[in-house]
Structure formats: C-alpha cells, structure tokens
Simulated scan of single mutants.
Amino acid sequence: MLIVDDHKFLRGILGDMLRGFGVTQLYMAENGVEGIKQFKTWLPSLVFTDLNMAPMNGLEFANWIRTDSESPNSEVPIVMLTANNDQQSITDARDVGVSELIVKPVVPKSVLRRLNAVMFEPRRFIRSARYTGPCRRRRENANYKGVYRRITDPIEVNTVNEDTKEMIGEIFTEAEALMDIARTLDVTNRKDVLDIYNRTKETKEMAVKADDENLGGAAQSLVGYIEAMGASGDMDVRVVKMHLEAIMSLVHLEDNGDGQRDAVVTSLQKLVQKKFRDIKAA
C-alpha cells in the first residue's frame, strides 16, 4: 500500500495503524509528484492520499492515477484523507474517482472500515468520457446497516461536540503555521522565538478548553523548552519541530486506551530533559 502525505509524522501514524491491521508492505511519499514515482515503481494494491499537498495535491494525484496514459493501474482503490468536510471537497474527490473519503482526525476504526469496503465490497469500475472511477450509484435504503461506500454518503466523523471539533481543527492549523515559521527560524531572533512561544501558549489554552490532556501536555512541553532556552542561541530548532509534529499527530491519534498518546507526550518531555542535561554538561 502507498501512503502519500506531506507530514512525515502523520504518514508514520497511518502506517502504524495499517501494520496493526496486518499490512506488511508499505511505501511512502510526501506529495503527488513523489507519489507518482512510488506508484510506478511499486504498483501498490491500495493508495491513501492526503488532499492538501504541494506541488501536486491529492486531487491531481488521484486524477493522474485514473486518467493518465502512464498510470500502470487506473483501477487501484484510492482513499483520500482530508480535514475538509465541506460539500465542495466531497464533490471534488468524487469527481476524480476517489473510492473512499476519511475526514480527519484519522482513527483506526475509520481506516479499517474503508479497508473492508474497498477490499471486500469493491464497486464496479466505470470508464466513460466524463468519469473514470468506482461506480457512485447505490439504491437508497433507510434501513441500510452496512459500510458506507459511496463518496456522497454521510461522512463518518468522531462523536465530539462541534465546539471541541472546531478547537481541535484550529490547533492543527496553528501547528502547521508554526511549522512554517520553524523551518526558517533563527533561534537568536527574539521576535520570531517570542511569536512561537506566545502562539504555543495559546495552543495549550485551546487544548485545555477542548479537554485534551495530551495536546495540552505537548504544547506545555514546548512552552517550557522555549522559556528555558529563550533567544540565547542554545535552542535546537529540531526540538521545536518535533513538538509541532507531535501536536499535529496527536490531533489524528485516537485515545483508545493503549497509551499511544501518553507515550508521544512522554517522549517529548524526555527529549527536553535530555537537551537540558546536554547543555549543563557542555
């Protein structure tokens, strides 16, 4: 199977889920352009792709698979991941021939249901002048209890209230924005360091309001690290990036009682403690 997502940490999270379901061969790509190369090389039996990527997004990548003459398997099942649950995103995904849609945050139950749908209940494949992809028609049945397979079916989302869901989405968006700053961060630039510090504090406050202890713990770990380092030049930007990646991954990692979310926060805290020890020993 091929996973195409521009966030390395999220590729890892989805990969871990799939390995937990027994998948043994996984290939990774960070955007549609790289995805095409991997798709041609490995001929995966199923593709997971994020929607929002650059330089080639998930819609463009899916359209290439379905319609390009160089695509080695235009009928491969495509599962698209997106943070957008608006009707336009759903329509766009449907029109390029996406098999299934998962709205983030991604949880194991949603992934397993989509796997079952495309592997054990595949739909007839359609080729026409206007559309190439799995059949989008299914007789409506109010008493239907099976897996939702059609891209226009109701979207499966986590059962959390809308305010909490919105705050979690804002946390992810803010972490993405801070990651953009961190990529070119000068750790001696007090203004940029202070900007990340203040916005991470706000992220922690949102996590508290959303009643997400792990997200709050990850944000607090970064706040504490920046407070201790300041703009002295001793700050390791890799530590900042790892915290932001962890925050984004926690948004998608379901709390199913297995301790995975706790382990993410604990690893951040140990990382910060090690950095402090290294500085003292220097």
Rank of each mutant, 00 (worst) to 15 (best):
I3R: 11
V4A: 06
K8G: 01
G15A: 05
G22D: 06
T24E: 13
T24I: 05
L26M: 11
E30Y: 05
E30T: 11
E30H: 09
V33G: 00
V33Q: 13
I36E: 04
I36F: 07
K37I: 03
Q38M: 12
Q38K: 13
K40T: 05
T41W: 07
T41V: 09
P44F: 01
P44K: 01
V47F: 08
V47Q: 04
L51Y: 15
A54E: 14
N57C: 06
W64Y: 15
I65V: 15
S69Q: 12
S71Q: 03
N73T: 04
E75H: 13
A83T: 12
D86L: 08
Q87C: 01
Q88G: 00
D92G: 00
D92Q: 13
D95Q: 14
V96R: 06
K104E: 04
P108K: 13
V111S: 04
L112S: 09
N116M: 07
N116F: 01
V118N: 02
M119L: 11
M119F: 03
R123T: 06
I126L: 13
I126R: 15
I126T: 12
I126H: 14
S128L: 06
A129V: 10
T132K: 15
R137H: 11
E140H: 15
N141C: 13
I151S: 03
D153Y: 10
V157N: 02
N158V: 06
D163A: 14
F172L: 06
E174K: 15
D180H: 10
D186E: 05
N189S: 07
R190S: 10
K191V: 05
D195G: 03
V208E: 08
K209V: 01
E213S: 07
G216W: 02
G217S: 05
S221M: 11
S221T: 14
L222N: 07
G224K: 14
I226Y: 11
E227M: 08
A228Y: 12
S232D: 04
G233W: 01
K241A: 03
M242H: 12
E245K: 14
A246L: 03
I247F: 10
H252D: 14
L253S: 07
L253G: 00
N256W: 00
D258K: 15
V265C: 05
T266V: 12
L268V: 08
K270R: 13
V272I: 14
Q273K: 13
F276G: 05
A281S: 15
